[in-house]
Write a protein that binds this DNA or RNA. Structure first.
Lengths: 412, 412
DNA sequence: GAACCTTTTGTGAAAATCCCCAAAAAGTGA
DNA sequence: TCACTTTTTGGGGATTTTCACAAAAGGTTC
């Protein structure tokens, strides 16, 4: 056959599955159709020859994440997003991928899906490539229908999510009903995750985000929405062994991928605590916002904190400052140390802070201060003397830590 | 001479010093007259023979504290407070005291002073004892005059102190003027010290307190007053090298002496911070009251804390609890640990608390828990896993500590 | 009761921390 | 300048802490 022949795909067909079988018949190889997020839309059944990647894709109704990652790294997906020509993929044994050809399905300037053809017995010819292009074109309309249906659902879920975030849904039954209508199974525990971008999120970035979230298979994202420069997610924490660390891991990977794949950098992820009661979503959301505000005030000390839980004392530093303002308290030890520093041009206060920052570890703190461990020891002895500090008393140390940070806070 | 002869002290005399010389002449030995607080009121000058204790008493215009302590320990002062008979004191070399005889001066049921006669060359006879009794009786009126003058001054200072404590004196000049009128030199820094008794202070105890305070030579007590079951002091912190520890030391000694000497137990001392501005006395006073209230709530954890400075996190636990109530926050790690404890009948939470209480010292904590250090290590590993706690992060640990204590606070 | 898991305790070697001493360097004041 | 104090650094040994491993004890489940 040649591309000058009659287009075999210009026939009516009811379902995408039927269409997949048609392509499979024409090209004589197994065919899979995915949406832009690599979710399985349809697959041919007439042919039993297949590879393990295709099997897991069909079983999971989506392309396995490690396969997607591999295809990104190796350049296939970036290529598919640039051209509407078929792309040949060499077999990748690590992920069970045999030789195949892929083509992207376009709607104007946007990729809305992919067709995959496995080259199990035969390699596809140039003519086959042309047929594939025609098939991609023919698939477009069917996919668009699916998309609009999805869009409507998405709109409804957006509205619902904002109601939850702002605490407008107060009745448990009502919340559960909404989840049911949107065909989302509410999980027994959840967290709110916010990614703050350094500028407002463009619609192009929105698509990229959507792609990343949909292709992610680590966590179940129940709802998500975008607000100016913030991407807000409601994530299920059900069945996770270490929810906090897994959520953190996920956000790190997301930030990494946004940078690597789309060149979007400076994204700050923040997490709420984990809750079971859906009426507390608003509170969880407020937690994330408060983390963001603290991170702005203490960028250095909170650089590894993304989680409201782990904010530690920073959770209430603002509150304390207010108390302090009212009572004109001053930390006696710190005052004396400051005085000494001033008089003798030393830096006992800084030494103390770094020591406390480093969890009382002399070696680590000495390294950070670029002094000998014995020097630090000596200074600590002096600090204990001058400031009348007992370094065996956790309470005293905490107070010093808090007051040191409060000083900084005030300095801002 | 015998006691049947004419009383040689029934003559008029202008000053107590003159009177001391008279006694000295009659008894033929050096004589010293003190008030009830062992402050020097008068001493004979006709005789140069003396001992080192007397010299320091005259130089310092008060009996040295170590001498007083010795006389208490050894029973002389308690005896003098019981009887109006002369008491003989054997020489005590450690404090430079040679043989002497003492007698107390009474006004009704109360001792208002002492007369000391040194037995340098001769021992006093029974007749001399009778004479001493007559002398003590004759000294009474003179001492009473001095007392009433003092009382008036004390009343004025009481009023002044309360004005300071309640913040009614806001002008620096006015405060200084008051100090000047009362012939008190205001020191450059001060602290408020409160002793809380377990019941209202009786007038008998008031005298004992006054005695202890006046005979103390460690610290300069600028003002003091009594309010129901509280003894409130304004103490100078000038010239002290380690004011906080010296103040603590002083309060410990005071509590000890009240117990040992007068059988008054269960006294809780509390200290404010150290301030320089006299307008902050009210604040300092409020600090002490807040320490007392915290100590009531956390008797165990604050059992070694007497100082607002050293309250540490307990300084603001109440405030935090309020915040927590509003935001319905729960510490994820603690929740998980509690759950685990419940399910497996373990005590990870308690373990964690004791570990944190002991400044992360595994050995100490293991001892307190009565388990092997390795057991504690194992538990901590489990705590880190189950509660997703990183024990290298001081911030996380502080948060756990705070939340643990808050739980207790709520439990109260 | 057997199989399995969790917890406790013990042992010992490696690693680290602590502590004392002393020398050098830096700073201070007459 | 010199004497003096304070601070820094280094060495090295005693002590503690840490860690891995193993055995025993206690609990749970089938």
């Amino acid at each position: 056959m040649s591309n000058r022949l009659h287009d075999p795909f210009r026939t009516a067909f009811d379902s995408l599955d039927e269409f997949a079988d048609l392509i499979s018949q024409v090209l004589k190889c197994p065919v899979t159709i995915e949406d832009s997020n690599h979710r399985l839309l349809a697959y041919s059944t007439h042919d039993e020859r297949t590879d393990s990647a295709r099997i897991s894709t069909i079983i999971g109704r989506r392309v396995p994440e490690k396969v997607i990652n591999q295809l990104w790294k190796e350049g296939t997906i970036p290529a598919l997003l640039k051209t509407n020509e078929p792309i040949r993929v060499k077999s990748i044994d690590e992920v069970g991928l045999s030789n195949r050809v892929a083509i992207s399905i376009w709607k104007q300037e946007e990729v809305i899906g992919f067709i995959w053809a496995l080259e199990i017995d035969k390699s596809l010819t140039d003519d086959d490539f042309s047929l594939l292009k025609q098939a991609a074109d023919a698939a477009k309309n069917k996919l668009l229908q699916l998309q609009t249906r999805k869009n409507k659902k998405e709109e409804r879920s957006q509205e619902f999510f904002w109601k939850l975030l702002t605490g407008h849904l107060k009745v448990q039954e009502e919340i559960l009903e909404n989840f049911h209508t949107l065909q989302i199974t509410p999980s027994s525990s959840f967290a709110v995750l916010v990614f703050q971008f350094n500028k407002n999120i463009t619609s192009k970035e929105e698509q990229n985000i959507s792609y990343l979230l949909k292709t992610n298979q680590r966590l179940k994202i129940m709802l998500y929405t975008i607000d100016c420069n913030q991407l807000i997610l409601l994530i299920s924490a059900e069945g996770l062994e270490n929810p906090l660390s897994e959520l953190e891991q996920f956000s790190k990977v997301f930030v990494l991928k946004m940078g690597d794949r789309y060149g979007v950098r400076d994204i700050t992820p923040v997490l709420s605590g984990i809750y079971k009661d859906y009426q507390k979503i608003r509170q969880a959301y407020e937690e994330t916002l408060s983390v963001l505000s603290v991170k702005q005030k203490f960028p250095f000390e909170t650089k590894d904190i993304y989680n409201y839980q782990k904010l530690g004392i920073y959770q209430f530093l603002g509150l304390l400052l207010e108390k302090r303002k009212n009572e004109e308290y001053e930390n006696y030890s710190l005052t004396k140390l400051h005085d000494y520093d001033q008089k003798h041009n030393s830096n006992l206060v800084e030494t103390l802070e770094i020591f406390l920052n480093n969890d009382n570890n002399i070696n680590d703190a000495a390294k950070e201060l670029n002094v000998h461990a014995n020097t630090l020891n000596y200074r600590l002895k002096r600090i204990a003397e001058i400031g009348e500090v007992n370094f065996k008393d956790p309470n005293q140390k905490m107070m010093l830590y808090v007051d040191l940070k409060l000083e900084k806070y005030q300095g801002i």
